[in-house]
Design a protein around this nucleic acid. Structure first.
Length: 473
RNA sequence: GUCCCCAUCGACUAGUGGCCUAGGUCACGGCCCUUUCAAGGCCGAAACACGGGUUCGAAUCCCGUUGGGGACGCCA
């Protein structure tokens, strides 16, 4: 039987890193077993079916390279199907009409909660007489459909990550499967979908473990075998609470916009809750090759940006300079260094040089693009502290001398520049060490950066000479 | 409140009863390299939540406690 898995997000307008990891595990599992990865939107809440809530999720998955083989399906387009399946349960006397109003139910729920009891439906409509039903109908009430669940016994969830998990029926109640307006509820729609889509493995977040017994009951009502369940642990914030906006970046796009590479995020997310011995760096192929549900660690994991950025730097250091150079363009604009048109016009050669020169100093594409302000433009500022410390009169005099010495360098490349500089310094009885930092400050306005001569080469002769001449002025 | 899940360094984790004086990675500290900053190399500090069992032997199995998380909707 071919493996069929699905990622079933609710359209929220963004793909959360936790959701991204769930999608990744599903995708890896499908690829590993030559299966089918299905995308489905859980939008029984009709409000949610809006393109602006859906498109970012699609785009995030594409950016991560988690392409789906089927779908996207939308529950909002399958209402007729759910109704049909629900009515089948009604006919078979496995479900019944409930005329209680949401207000009545809500009041009971609140009362139970404040009495410190588990809120459960009391089964009031389970055995209404025909006359009682007529009265409700006359009063204009529209019934919802509830499933009948056994009064006692237990149900066992076989979880591929957690093993057997047992629930007592006394914890469950006759829950609603079809709302009074005819729309299905989440638990019902999920099962009808998973059955009709032939899902073999349900890999989803831990928070759904409690829903699983309800869903198994629905499978049983339809006489359908259950799929394999695997509940993956939650992704938490640094303070161990649920990851949310107040913790900073949580969406895939936020990391993309900060200059994180998709392969870094994928690698990081894969290692969050899953491991293969001591290996940290995984190519996509290695991930597929080695992934297994049994190796998923059951406890919740904290999302650690530091480690993500370390991985990101690893991929910056080892990636193809041409590709990375191209990825730099939007960041030149975002950092207000160049206009859109200017950024497009920068020769790829220059971008490649920047990548090679600065990749060991940058954790993100954004950091990698930043030196362009002094390399490609004059649109940068001098750090006053650095100027004060290094651009002292004796140093600036040497720098002006160096400027003249460099005018005679024909091929303005690092090796030639270095030769000319060392020769000049020797003639002055000085060592490179003495002016290196002063030179750097004069050229870049700061005390940190790549090798001096490579920086000069990339900056270009005109800028170098002009900046050295006016050093300290 | 009830139910469910979880528990190894600050973080991610290895570990499936003896290979463990608990390994790797990030972060942290030190040293080396060095024109700066990085990168790199070497070294270091740092954990089996607690209490009972089971066993010749327990991080590993069982029970309890504590702590964290989740669920209890005509939300998904």
């Amino acid at each position: 039987m071919t493996v069929r898995v699905r990622f079933a997000p609710s359209p929220t307008g963004e793909l959360h890193v936790g959701g991204a990891r769930t999608a990744l595990f599903n995708w890896l599992f499908a690829r590993k077993h030559n299966g089918v990865f299905i995308l489905r939107f859980e939008d029984t809440d009709i409000e949610r079916n809006r393109p602006e809530l859906i498109e970012p999720i699609l785009e995030s998955l594409r950016w991560l390279g988690l392409l789906w083989d089927e779908g996207p399906y939308f529950q909002s387009q399958r209402f007729a199907l759910y109704r049909e399946w629900a009515e089948r349960l009604l006919r078979e006397n496995k479900a019944y009409k409930c005329y209680c109003t949401p207000e009545e139910l809500e009041a009971k729920r609140k009362a139970a909660l404040s009495a410190k009891l588990k809120p459960k439906y009391d089964g009031r409509c389970r055995s209404l007489t025909a006359q009682e039903e007529q009265e409700f109908l006359r009063a204009g009430r529209q019934p919802a459909l509830r499933i009948k669940i056994p009064q006692c016994g237990t149900i066992t969830v076989e979880d591929a990550i957690r093993g057997k998990v047992e629930f007592d029926f006394s914890e469950l109640d006759d829950f609603i499967i079809l709302r009074s307006d005819g729309r299905p509820t989440y638990n019902f729609a999920v099962v009808v979908d998973d059955i009709t889509m032939g899902i073999t493995h349900v890999i989803r977040a831990d928070e759904h473990l409690n829903n699983t017994p309800k869903q198994i009951l629905i499978y049983q009502a339809f006489g359908h075998p259950v799929p394999v369940f695997a509940h993956v642990p939650m992704v938490l914030a640094k303070d161990r609470s649920k990851l949310s906006k107040r913790h900073g970046a949580t969406a895939v796009f936020e990391f993309r916009d900060r200059g994180v590479l998709p392969e870094a995020l994928v690698n990081y997310l894969a290692r969050l809750g899953w491991a293969h011995g001591d290996q940290e760096i995984f190519s996509r192929e290695e991930l597929i090759e080695n992934f297994s549900l049994a190796a998923v660690h059951p406890s919740a994991a904290i999302f650690d940006e530091e480690k993500l950025f370390w991985l990101n730097q690893h991929y910056l250091k080892t990636g193809d300079p041409k590709r990375l150079g191209e990825l730099l363009r939007p960041f030149l604009v975002k950092l207000n260094i160049l206009s859109d048109a200017e950024a497009q016009a920068v020769p790829i050669e220059a971008l490649k040089r920047m990548v090679v020169l600065f990749r060991e100093r940058a954790k993100t594409l954004s950091e990698l693009a930043e030196p362009a302000c002094y390399l490609l433009t004059d649109n940068f500022s001098y750090d006053p502290e650095a100027v004060k410390k290094f651009l002292t009169p004796d140093k600036t005099e040497l720098l002006r001398g160096l400027a003249e010495a460099l005018t005679s360098v024909e091929r303005f490349v690092a090796s030639e520049i270095e030769g000319a500089t060392r020769a000049y310094l020797e003639s002055q009885g000085r060592a490179l060490k003495e002016i290196a930092q002063a030179c750097r400050v004069a050229l870049t306005g700061r005390t940190t950066g790549a090798g001096l001569f490579e920086t000069m080469e990339l900056m270009g002769k005109d800028r170098v000479i002009a900046r050295l001449r006016q050093a300290g002025a």
